[in-house]
């Protein structure tokens, strides 16, 4: 009746049920803590703007300032936050383009990271456009946060932080150079 096998499987099953219930509770109650995000963005300097010789598309590289306080955005089901800055615009015939230009993984234990304060930060990825329509384009900038959960559903938050207009012409110092 109470053989070793029976005991072992009972323990395993009970542990599994407990873990599942706790996970469900953890995920279900985390939402009540959540705070909206906010950020300050400003464009500092357009460093490179031209045609990419290998990809044959418009590309821009710029420096920016970014401030945001993410301390309250963590809830108890957040493993870490994936913060990223996207640039969005529409082509001349109305097709949407969204490009990530910078991202960062914000760890829970590294509390210094929770207050983002970047001055004169270089973009991580080029703002590139396959349609070659970037000249004179006004683009919208969004600050996004993706909640990476311990268990449960991933969830994204985003906020519009500003816009800027790219130069009317390619920057002369760069357009002819090889990448």
């Amino acid at each position: 009746m109470h053989s070793l096998k029976n005991r072992f499987s009972a323990i395993c099953f009970f542990t599994l049920i407990c873990m599942a219930c706790l996970s469900l509770f953890n995920w279900g109650t985390a939402v009540i803590q959540r705070k909206p995000i906010d950020a300050d963005f400003s464009l500092n300097k357009m460093s490179k703007f031209g045609v990419h010789p290998y990809l044959n598309e418009d590309f821009a590289q710029f420096k920016f300032n970014l401030q945001s306080d993410l301390t309250g955005v963590f809830d108890w089901n957040t493993y870490d936050l994936f913060a990223f800055l996207t640039v969005e615009y529409e082509s001349n015939d109305g097709r949407k383009t969204e490009v990530t230009v910078w991202d960062d993984i914000i760890l829970r234990k590294n509390t210094k990271q929770h207050k983002i304060d970047y001055k004169n930060m270089q973009v991580e990825y080029l703002l590139s456009d396959k349609n070659k329509e970037l000249r004179g384009k006004t683009v919208q900038v969004y600050f996004n946060v993706d909640h990476m959960p311990v268990v449960g559903f991933t969830q994204k938050q985003r906020v519009h932080v500003g816009n800027f207009t790219l130069p009317e012409e390619y920057l002369a110092s760069y357009s002819a150079k090889r990448y």
């Binding site: 097709r95 490009v99 990530t100 990825y125």
Partner: peptide
């Protein structure tokens, strides 16, 4: 993770 999405058709 996706970093760029550029529509070819609307």
């Amino acid at each position: 993770r996706l970093i760029t999405v550029q529509e070819i058709e609307k």
